[in-house]
Structures are given as structure tokens and as C-alpha cells.
Design a protein around this nucleic acid. Structure first.
Length: 293
DNA sequence: TACTGTTTATATATCA
DNA sequence: TGATATATAAACAGTA
């Protein structure tokens, strides 16, 4: 793990794996899926390091998309012009980074062989269907055939994306991080300014996201991170290195059958909520809906 | 033709 | 120390 220093990672390699970066990009989108080109764009917008040697890292990123089961490919419909498919996060990949490292996962997410086909048609299907319906689009070709996500093997925990900002800061916001140490003491130990407001914590944890403002670019909607854009941005000129924070989604209170029964309705409910919430789409809202429904 | 997606291979780092 | 995760390169096929 890179040591925090005075300089940002603006010209250094961010302490995130391609998997992390890709997942961040996907999670940042309102639809929770992005075409490859937009994933590139997200990464380059936020991490200046990746504005160079594009051929190299983009090849690596494509490799990761294909190689890792945690990414699922959502085909375009014929009336959705554009190259390539959309990429989304597999709903079961939420605890990949439970050890808190964005450079190396605890274990590689692997879809059970028997569930492989089903995994390519996850409960996200309902989510995407609703999203596309909201966007005035009908489901992509073939999606209509998909069955509700199979819960065989490992119980699906629904949408528990680790890259939602509230997942990243959630435990810390409550004053707890892995190892039982308060976030403040950990960050202080690492040389970070420890401020009380949530925004300060967020901006310290996600400095790269804030670079956009500092660089004068217009950031897109980061609502999916669960916090207003402004709260995620450093003041111009201020930059801090990232501190990968342990991620562990809150345990679900539903058992798999319950999840299966409610995921579709929950997705629809979430979408209504997100529409009402306009720009702020909480990354784990669906999870919350699942827990509370 | 450039982009997208898949696959294979190799090297390195990290974990158990 | 072996297993595993990640990074990188490269070849190749399909497609807009």
C-alpha cells in the first residue's frame, strides 16, 4: 500500500487495482452500468495518471473486465447505437475487498459454474430493465428471457457495492475501522488531517475524485457515491493521498428467499426514490431498501 | 480502421 | 514456500 505523502497521486499511480477503478466507474453511474468508453473516461477524468499510456492500461482494463466474473456484460439493444456493451458489477461481488485493500482482494470473485449462465442474468436484470424503462428504453435483447437471479451456491446479498462512498466511509463514519481502531486515530497516524465533518472524511478518503474540480473540469453526477458532489471535492489546490478504507457491507437481515422475493420490487422502489432524489443516488439505497422492506 | 472483447502467457506482489 | 491476485503484453476475432 502506498504511503501517504504530501503530494497527491495526481501524477502517480493511484492505489487502486483496475478492478477497483472499473467498479468505481460503474458504481458512479446512475444506471450502475457503463460502456467501456465511459469507464475509460471516468478513470482518466479522475486519475491524471491514466491519461498517459492509455493503450497499456486500457488493454489491462479490458482484460480485467473479461477475466473477472465480478463484471457482467449487458448487451446493447439494436436501437441503442454505439460500440460495445455495457458493463455492470455482479451483485455478489460486494465483499471482494473485505480486507480493506483496493489493491488486492481477499479472494477473487468467481461465479459458480452451475450458476454461470444465471450469473450473467442477475437480479440486476430487473434493475436494468427499470433503469432503461426510466430512460425510455426497453430491455436489451434477450433480457426478457432472464429469470430472477439464482441464489444457488452463495446466498445473494443483493446490491452491496463496495465502491459506494457510503460503504467506504460507512463504518468509519461510525468511528470503527478494521482492527478496531477509530478512523480518526488511523488517519491521524497516517498523517491525515482529521476533521469532524463527514465531508472532510470523504474528501480525505477520495482525493482523486476531488481532483476534477481542482483541474477545472466539470464533474458529472457523482450521486451514486451517495454524497453530494461538493462534499467529495477538495478545495482547489488541496490534495491528499487516498486511504483505502476497509469495506464490509452491513449484514443483510433477509434470508435468500426473501431477497429473491423482494429484489425486484425493491429495485423498482429504489428507482422511484432515486428519481425523487434527482442527482443524489445512494449507492447502497437498494441494500437499504432490502434491509428495511 | 479503430474499437471492443477474449484469451493466453509471463512477471511480480502478496497472502496463508 | 506454494497459491493466488494483479499487472502487463500480445494475438486474434468480431463489429460499428
Amino acid at each position: 500500500m502506498p504511503r501517504p505523502g504530501k503530494n497527491s497521486y495526481s501524477d502517480q499511480k493511484p492505489p487502486y487495482s483496475y478492478i477497483s477503478l472499473t467498479a468505481m466507474a460503474i458504481q458512479s453511474s446512475a444506471e450502475k452500468m457503463l460502456p467501456l468508453s465511459d469507464i475509460y473516461k471516468f478513470i482518466m477524468d479522475r486519475f491524471p495518471y491514466y491519461r498517459e499510456n492509455t493503450q497499456r492500461w486500457q488493454n489491462s482494463l479490458r482484460h480485467n473486465l473479461s477475466f473477472n466474473d465480478c463484471f457482467i456484460k449487458i448487451p446493447r439493444r439494436p436501437d441503442q447505437p454505439g460500440k460495445g456493451s455495457f458493463w455492470a458489477l455482479h451483485p455478489d461481488c460486494g465483499d471482494m475487498f473485505e480486507n480493506g485493500s483496493f489493491l488486492r482482494r481477499r479472494k477473487r470473485f468467481k461465479v459458480h459454474r452451475a450458476d454461470h449462465l444465471a450469473s450473467k442474468s442477475p437480479p440486476l436484470i430487473h434493475y436494468y430493465q427499470h433503469q432503461q424503462a426510466k430512460l425510455g428504453l426497453s430491455p436489451p435483447e434477450g433480457m426478457g428471457r432472464f429469470q430472477p437471479y439464482s441464489l444457488n451456491g452463495s446466498p445473494s446479498s443483493g446490491f452491496k457495492h463496495p465502491f459506494a462512498i457510503e460503504n467506504i466511509i460507512g463504518r468509519d463514519y461510525k468511528g470503527v475501522v478494521a482492527g478496531g481502531l477509530p478512523l480518526a486515530s488511523v488517519m491521524h497516524h497516517l498523517g491525515y488531517p482529521v476533521s469532524g465533518p463527514l465531508g472532510g472524511v470523504v474528501s480525505s478518503v477520495w482525493p482523486h475524485v476531488g481532483m476534477v474540480d481542482a483541474m477545472g473540469a466539470v464533474p458529472p453526477d457523482y450521486g451514486a457515491f451517495g454524497v453530494p458532489v461538493k462534499a467529495m471535492c477538495h478545495p482547489p489546490g488541496q490534495s491528499m493521498p487516498a486511504v483505502p478504507v476497509p469495506i464490509k457491507p452491513a449484514p443483510l437481515t433477509l434470508n435468500p428467499p426473501q431477497i429473491c422475493a423482494t429484489v425486484s420490487a425493491a429495485a423498482a422502489s429504489l428507482l422511484d426514490q432515486t428519481a425523487a432524489a434527482s442527482s443524489v443516488v445512494k449507492g447502497s439505497s437498494l441494500h437499504s431498501v432490502l434491509v428495511h422492506s
